[in-house]
Simulated scan of single mutants.
Amino acid sequence: MKTGHKAAALSCLAVGAGAAACWRWMFRMPLKEFTRYALYMAVMDDEICRNELEGNWIGDKVITFPPKIDTLQGRYHLFLKMNQTKSRRQIQKEIRKMEQRLQESRQYIGQPKEQLEVEFFEENDPLQ
């Protein structure tokens, strides 16, 4: 085999190996499934926050949330961005954790609300 043929064959093999590696690392799951997971996580996160925080107060202000329709889009985009580099298995693991936390957060429904303490840091605080 001539040197030119060998170089061409090696080039084709390198391109094939590179394409396979790129597909393996970049292709995580179908877009429809990925967006469905992100929406599910956004809905669960919104529900967890409402269960645990709504009605409590910080200082003299009561914590209230806007309607769900207004908060879900932002949360959805947040979960799309946060999960874009994760595999299906990693996302499913996070979903299981969120489902468990949602179950735990339901204990706060109908319970007396409490005063929450929030610690504010100064801009030049070295602990930040």
Rank of each mutant, 00 (worst) to 15 (best):
F65H: 13
P112T: 07
E52Q: 09
Q73C: 02
Q111F: 01
H77L: 15
I58A: 08
S105Y: 06
E99Q: 08
A14Y: 11
G55N: 02
L80Q: 01
P67T: 07
C12W: 01
P126A: 11
R96C: 13
R36H: 10
F79K: 13
M26R: 01
K86T: 10
L116Q: 03
M1H: 02
L72T: 09
M29R: 13
L53D: 13
A8H: 04
I48P: 01
A7S: 02
W25C: 02
F65E: 08
F34I: 00
D60Q: 14
K113V: 07
H5D: 14
I48R: 05
E117Q: 11
Q73M: 04
G16V: 01
W57Q: 04
G110C: 08
F27R: 07
P112V: 06
F65K: 09
L80E: 14
M82Q: 13
I91R: 01
D60A: 10
C12M: 03
G74D: 15
Q100F: 05
D70H: 12
Q128F: 15
I63V: 15
E123G: 00
G59N: 11
R89I: 07
R75N: 14
A21M: 06
R50L: 04
R50S: 14
T64G: 07
M26A: 08
L102P: 01
L39Q: 05
P126Y: 12
C22K: 00
R88N: 12
A14L: 08
R101T: 04
Y108D: 11
G110E: 14
R89T: 14
E114R: 12
E117N: 13
W25D: 04
M1V: 01
Q100R: 09
Q111R: 09
M82F: 13
E47W: 02
P66I: 10
I109V: 15
A38G: 03
R50D: 06
T64W: 08
A38V: 02
E119A: 10
C22S: 03
G55A: 07
L31Y: 08
T85C: 02
A17P: 01
R88V: 13
D125K: 14
E94G: 06
E54A: 14
V62I: 10
A7N: 01
I95L: 06
I58M: 09
T64F: 10
D70V: 09
A42H: 11
K93I: 07
L53N: 14
I63S: 10
L102G: 00
M44Q: 03
L80M: 15
A14I: 07
L13N: 05
M82S: 11
S87W: 14
T71G: 06
A14N: 09
T35M: 07
L102E: 03
T35F: 09
K2E: 05
T64H: 10
A8G: 00
K81Y: 15
L39E: 12
K97H: 14
K6D: 06
